[in-house]
Amino acid sequence: MTEGNFVDYVKIHVASGKGGQGSTHLRREKFVAKGGPDGGDGGRGGHVLVRANKNLWTLLNYKFKRHFKAGHGEHGGKSNSTGAQGEDIILEVPLGTVIRDTETNTVLYEITEEGQEEILLPGGLGGKGNSHFKSPTNQTPRYAQPGRPGEEKDITLELKVLADVGLVGFPNAGKSTLLSVLTAAKPKIADYPFTTLKPNLGIVKHRGFHSFVMADIPGIIEGAAEGKGLGHYFLRHIERNATLLFLLPADSPDLRKEYEVLLSELERYNPEMLDKSRLVAISKTDLLDEELESMLKEEVRETFKDVPVHFISSVAQQGLQPLKDALWEIISPDKNAE
């Protein structure tokens, strides 16, 4: 899927259908002079529903069509015939979609499970026919209820990528290259910052026919939590990743500072992100000779005392299997529980 087709934030307008009007029909048949009321109820207006679809990865369907309206219920008929229900509108969205009320910004639903279906707006109820209002003192009521009107609302659909591992790092840290080597994904790769403008997903194959999903998130810069660079556009995608893999290039002038800036931006955006399990991978180690690599390992041992560190080279494909083993060891309890 091209970057232009990845849509993760849209605002749409939805409206449910109006209920049908109840009938005021009076029964008239040969040899039945006063048959009484037999008006049927109006049909319910169509609902607006949202349904999870695991085969979707983007909100592209809602990029160009922004207005969705369910069908109206039909009016009741004679012989106590109930009107047909209005046609429902079903909005299919990918897993990880958050649905908000645009006006109040309150979260209505979070779509996280395949087959999950929720009613966004209920259709208006159909009106009762005149047969409901007959009584000993009013045997031929000539009135019925009108249908209830439908509802309208502006909603925001926001996709948060669901992945087992999220790649976190500064622009040009080598995230896209690592994803392209570990998976069949083909992200855009170039020697300049912000090559990746949209999240990319790939499936990493592991030993014993196991696999897990890895997400390449656009690079973080200092001040991202306030919206600098690509800001909130990508930070929300990290929220649902089970594990964070921090990618720091071996040619960085200050590994400790880079790591602290990344942690700081995540904390400022959402402090709960620091509760996620995390690993550090020192990338581009093919640029180092043995002496420099030995010195760097000593420095890293002092800097990252509480976090597992792996030295890798995506280009030379060095250290990748131990990295996959370490990631699988962290996420496998969740995988085995599925």
Rank of each mutant, 00 (worst) to 15 (best):
172 N>H: 07
86 G>A: 08
311 F>S: 07
286 D>T: 14
14 V>K: 06
333 P>N: 10
327 L>D: 02
112 T>W: 02
79 S>L: 15
265 E>K: 12
209 F>S: 09
270 N>T: 10
1 M>C: 12
251 D>E: 08
197 L>W: 04
101 D>K: 10
121 L>H: 07
296 L>Y: 01
297 K>T: 08
259 Y>E: 04
124 G>N: 06
260 E>F: 10
279 L>I: 13
44 R>P: 03
255 L>F: 03
242 A>L: 14
256 R>D: 04
13 H>A: 13
308 P>E: 01
126 G>K: 09
331 I>F: 01
224 A>K: 06
198 K>R: 13
303 T>K: 05
336 N>K: 14
5 N>V: 12
205 K>P: 03
313 S>I: 14
314 S>P: 08
61 N>D: 13
161 V>L: 05
85 Q>G: 13
242 A>Q: 13
281 A>C: 09
323 L>I: 14
87 E>D: 12
282 I>N: 01
89 I>L: 04
64 F>Y: 15
203 I>A: 04
128 K>P: 06
268 R>W: 01
90 I>P: 00
17 G>E: 01
108 L>Y: 02
32 V>N: 05
240 R>H: 08
150 G>K: 09
55 N>L: 10
217 I>L: 06
49 L>V: 12
146 P>T: 15
287 L>M: 08
128 K>S: 11
96 G>S: 07
82 T>H: 04
143 Y>Q: 08
53 N>F: 03
180 S>M: 07
197 L>D: 01
129 G>M: 08
165 V>Y: 01
24 T>R: 12
51 R>M: 03
52 A>C: 11
179 L>C: 07
76 G>A: 10
